[in-house]
């Protein structure tokens, strides 16, 4: 099925395309622009930033009501409760990570950028962590007071959450990328992602527990750091591959 006449039209085309500029800027420019754009987008819709925080506070309120207001009991289970509630709050905002881009067609444009998709996805995940994981980590000590978390573990709580939630964002982004093409991906996303969160939960809550008992916390934080390193190594590629699958429909 050859087309006749294509050669003729080459002849007519005239001078070499003047309307072409070779792209100049590199990956850094694209990363910076994507980071800035996502940050602006989220800042304009404050609700998306605040909802996980309110959710976090609400869930923490449910526990004393559901279990007992006894400070002694609460203080023993506080590390786990705070970590689980923060983890669920972080999960809540994951579904919208790529959804907006998918719906309005920017995701296709992201895929067609000459820059590596894994790096661009990483910029988006960084924004997600900055506006979800980090605020949750900063807010956790306040809720810790409400659960009578023993003194001396507040800093560790915030630190472990800040470190751990970065891994949560990275792992969660894989699930978000896999389910972004599905109309009701929200529940499925939790199903896919929660089992993968367990190691982070174990070492995150373990760090707070260790701080309360007066044990060394370096090992826990080091392992959380190691988990983050592994996630940083593998997750961007998995996110990129998943986005390419999702765009196929």
């Amino acid at each position: 099925m050859r087309m006749s006449g294509t050669e003729a039209s080459v002849g007519k085309a005239g001078p070499a395309t003047p309307s072409h500029r070779e792209p100049r800027g590199g990956l850094r420019v694209a990363l910076h622009a994507t980071f800035k754009r996502d940050l602006t987008l989220l800042m304009r819709r404050c609700g998306e930033v605040f909802n996980p925080l309110v959710f976090f506070a609400l869930v923490i309120t449910l526990f004393p009501i559901g279990i007992s207001p006894d400070p002694e009991l609460l203080s023993t289970i506080a590390p786990g409760l705070l970590w689980v509630a923060a983890l669920l709050a972080a999960l809540l905002s994951l579904d919208s990570l790529f959804r907006g881009d998918y719906d309005d067609g920017s995701l296709e444009q992201l895929l067609l950028s000459p820059q590596p998709l894994a790096a661009l996805a990483l910029a988006k995940v960084a924004v997600h962590w900055l506006l979800t994981g980090l605020p949750l980590a900063l807010m956790a000590p306040v809720l810790g007071i409400m659960l009578s978390l023993p003194a001396g573990s507040y800093l560790v709580l915030a630190l472990s959450l800040a470190l751990g939630s970065a891994s949560l964002s990275l792992i969660g982004a894989i699930g978000a990328a896999l389910t972004v093409g599905l109309s009701r991906g929200g529940v499925l996303l939790s199903l896919l992602v929660l089992p993968l969160y367990i190691p982070v939960l174990i070492f995150g809550a373990g760090a707070v527990q260790a701080a309360i008992l007066g044990d060394g916390i370096t090992a826990h934080l080091a392992i959380l750091g190691a988990l983050l390193a592994v996630a940083l190594m593998f997750a961007p590629w998995a996110i990129a591959a998943s986005l390419r699958i999702s765009i196929n429909g």
């Binding site: 500029r21 792209p23 100049r24 800027g25 590199g26 420019v29 694209a30 910076h32 622009a33 994507t34 754009r37 602006t40 987008l41 304009r44 819709r45 907006g100 719906d103 309005d104 067609g105 920017s106 296709e108 444009q109 992201l110 067609l112 950028s113 000459p114 820059q115």
Partner: peptide, 27 residues
């Protein structure tokens, strides 16, 4: 490439939308 969906963010202004595309294109 211009897709079926416009690829334009509703919360950003036209200028901001184009700024992102400019950066992604490497201009």
């Amino acid at each position: 490439y211009l897709g079926h969906a416009a690829g334009v963010k509703a919360t950003l202004t036209p200028l901001e939308n184009l700024a992102w595309y400019q950066a992604m294109a490497g201009d």
